[in-house]
Design a protein around this nucleic acid. Sequence first.
RNA 1: CGGGGCAUGGCGCAGUCUGGUAGCGCACCUGCUUUGGGAGCAGGGGGUCGUGGGUUCAAAUCCCGCUGCCCCGACCA
Length: 572
Amino acid sequence: MRLSRLPLTTLKETPADAEVVSHQLMLRAGLIRMLAAGLYNWMPLGLKVVRKVETIVREEMDRSGAVELLMPAVQPAELWRESGRWEQYGPELLRLADRHQREFCFGPTHEEVITDIARRELKSYRQLPVNYYQIQTKFRDEIRPRFGVMRAREFVMKDAYSFHLDSASLDETYEAMRLAYCRIFDRLGLDYRYVRADSGAIGGALSHEFHVLADSGEDEIVYSEQSDYAANVEQAPAPAPQSPRPAPTQEIIEVDTPGQHTIEEVSRFLGTPPEQSVKTLIVRGEEDSSLVALILRGDHRLNAAKAAKLDGIRSPLYFADEAEVREKLGCPVGSLGPVDLDLPLYVDASAAVLSDFVCGANREGVHCTGVNWGRDANPDQVCDIRNLEDGEPSPDGSGPVRSARGIEVGHIFQLGDKYSQAMDCTVLDPDGKQRIVTMGCYGIGITRIVAAAIEQNHDEHGIIWPDAMAPFSVLLCPIGADRDAAVRDVAEILYRQCRELGIETLLDDRGLRPGVMFAEADLLGIPHRVVISPRTLEQEKLEYRHRRGRDESEEVPINGLAEFLGERITPR
RNA sequence: CGGGGCAUGGCGCAGUCUGGUAGCGCACCUGCUUUGGGAGCAGGGGGUCGUGGGUUCAAAUCCCGCUGCCCCGACCA
């Protein structure tokens, strides 16, 4: 394509409301434009990247034996009532009414519709297993859309749903999907991990998430370097304490700690290590007005997902605010402690084996030292409610874990019969009996992948597309084409040659000054850049540079360029 | 939804405190010069100052309401 014909507006300055690099660069490079909160226009160059991702996903899904279909984005409420989710789903579900006041929703996901299809179409076990997929626009009315296309309200997703007679068959398809996902992310050129995920409401069913590693990721994952263990911290068990609780050696003493609230402040003030203290967090209990206390060792971090799963604690986890704590417990949050605290005490296992520890005295400016369980306070429940930290033993015993941040781009899980049961999706088995089918479902965030790829592949000058996702493979940059006929002619010849070779090529024929052209080239991130200028043309040469090696360029003979690029680019 | 902030040309901002008829940089258009890392000079176009009301001789500026957006928390591809 000729750049002169691509309506492209780039921004030299970073838009003020873009927080993460991918969002900033996507706006600056003219890939997307915001329409409203969480709604984005995909501009021509951006859409090309989306299509690249879709194509790879489609190829690998097809290769895995899945079959593509397309369901409506708008879905009737009746189906959602059948599954029970019309009531459960909450405000994230965008509900609509048509002119007859019939209720619909804009699909955030398609379990109901696909199960309805399956129960109509699938009559015999002979038709199983089957794995349907689609690539389609979803809408989720997120509480807080942010980070551009990374957490948009409307987004493109590949969703697949498989149907099986038994769990052995489900296991097979699940594994096939896991492998297909690995091939997809490998081909996209992304650094990713798949991790065991919190299966949440679905119960004990198997679930894996695929994360692109990036510091800006919203999820924390832990993985072992010695084995293939990897998990979302939300569900990685913390190691049990090694040794039993030592006997008390100190008496409980109240000490004045004026103005000291955080664990660090109190530890420094008293000269005790943070791991010898305990922090107390107040969250909602299952009844609306009830509160419970979570007790953690001072240096540990609360794991909200684990805590929310415990009986007696409201899910999702909901913190009491500062004012409520003051009103009901009579002190600021920074002065809380388990001693004489009239709330159920959920104590993390690592905090429960401390003796002679430090904690708040439930009075402003006062802490207790020499506190001991049994004598000074009693846990109501000892549990695992903390994060597994970097460097701690891996749950599979393979050595220490590393911790990293990730962007969730894929999620596969075994649904079981949740929807098939509720919606009566059955087939006849070999014995002629009606059997409820069992299901799996498999999602990939297509548009999120585009943002995640940029988070992982950029420098201070702009985007560096992985080859498989680049909107174009080659960018031809003629310098001084308006003054030098040779430059112009060579550029045109190369442009034609490249296209004949099936290489997706962008010709910058806008006649810009070199500085501007190079700055835009870096911003757009096309992998292979070829400069045509009088300087090298004299020696019948061109200047080649890969976007990744910004400071290393090499000279290539004009008539050798086709071969040179052919070795580096797989034609499409 | 709770807490904080912002709304002035396409983008980034100043002007608001102390009311006096809108300005800067980038981008855009024209001309000349320039041409290997976001050029220079000259000229030019474009703004109901988010919106509705109020105060006032006079409102971007003061007061009240509404809307939109961003940031921090719980949800997810």
